[in-house]
Design a protein around this nucleic acid. Structure first.
Lengths: 219, 219
DNA sequence: TGGTAAATTAGACTAATTATAAATAAGATC
DNA sequence: GATCTTATTTATAATTAGTCTAATTTACCA
């Protein structure tokens, strides 16, 4: 077995994989063990070969989703995960970070930043780009003026927001949760007030922006 | 001046640009004149240098949008445009194709397909990947069972759908358009019927999927 | 010039929602 | 343990939004 760092590329877009290969070629002690265009392919690689680092974009519906980190860790605990994604949804990002992702970049990061991140992750260190670092800090020390509203919703409110955003009307939600329609009205009113929205349709936009639902999952 | 084909890369993600550079390196008679991470940078390149082919992803809000083809043609009429995007919104794609895009790929296309497309576009030929070709054919010969519903909406209905999707309620729309709320109700009912939807919130999802509105423009 | 589709609206009716108020339960704090 | 807060739940009455039916106007096409 080679002593080089074994890297697996997981991205639905072949273009990004080519880009990553190109960048990895500049780091001498790394070696690509495999490329995966979807979750299934990635898990197969992890089962068949030893992988030190997985570079993955989890925000590619149908190919990779936010559960990918947990799935990777389940098969191969010691594999380090480097995320390169364009996701901007705070809650989703926090969730992924909690699932054991070592490093997190956006696809907008420049070349040097990506190279540094790959090198750091390979060595077992963590690396976060500025945008993600800001989010982590914001979570630890929330500022007053710019509050992170999604967390201010109660679990029940989030649940109802999700259902509203999926196009269900109050009566349907009430039937589904076995509670009174009035309860839905109250929750919905509180949600609208908390988020400073005025109509249920605005809730859809809000839910989409904050990753409570996503377009693909609605079909 | 070199006799090689001058190519400009326009993609907000550095990773994709690296990927494209890597692929272009395999085509001997091409040369990269410049890389642009946003519209402004691209237009500057077009003004300063001769560009035969622009490879661009127009679906990157804040960096590139669907008007990019028209903007490119305005500065440099003879420049061929190769789109590599992940957009799945029919109407938007038709629009871009009408703006003089020579070739259209998705980022999911495999390496050979991308190489062929670049080579073809550089020679002044057109190249469409299967997914896009299917859409073009579907537009020319619409099938009965799977009708392309967005076009079946009247202009007024589209207008109202857009406003509904922006979170406005019937009364607000009525005030804005100086017509009776009843008119809005009627239009909305007809839209829901035509699109086989059941609630205004579903209209938001529909409008997003078909590019009538986009998340970024709502803020 | 009659036919067709689009856009508009009203009246009567029904359903959905709000306002207000309040009960219950769980957790934290003192 | 008593109390305070927050989350969750619900109801009645009042209000608003929306549907159904039907009809009018406009514009454009054959």
């Amino acid at each position: 077995m080679s002593s080089k760092i074994q890297v697996a590329l997981a991205d639905a877009d072949v273009l990004c994989r080519v880009g990553l290969s190109g960048l990895l070629a500049k780091i001498s002690d790394t070696e690509i063990v495999g490329e995966a265009g979807n979750t299934e392919e990635l898990l197969r690689i992890l089962q068949d070969d030893h992988v030190d680092v997985v570079i993955v974009d989890y925000n590619q519906p149908k190919y990779f989703d936010y559960t990918i980190a947990a799935q990777i860790k389940k098969i191969s605990t010691d594999t380090q995960i480097l995320v390169i994604s364009s996701d901007s949804r705070r809650e989703r990002i926090y969730q992924v970070l909690e699932d054991g992702v070592s490093s997190f970049l956006t696809k907008q990061c420049d070349e040097n930043e990506i190279l540094d991140a790959i090198a750091a992750t390979a060595k077992g260190e963590k690396f976060y780009c500025h945008k993600i670092l800001d989010m982590i800090i914001e979570r630890s020390f929330p500022s007053k003026d710019e509050d992170c509203t999604p967390t201010s919703l109660t679990p029940r409110e989030k649940e109802i927001l999700t259902l509203v955003a999926k196009g269900k009307v109050a009566k349907e939600i009430a039937a589904e949760l076995h509670i009174s329609p009035h309860t839905i009205y109250t929750h919905r009113k509180n949600i609208l007030k908390k988020l400073q929205l005025t109509s249920p349709t605005e809730m859809v936009v809000y839910a989409l922006e904050h990753g409570l639902i996503d377009l693909q999952s609605l079909n």
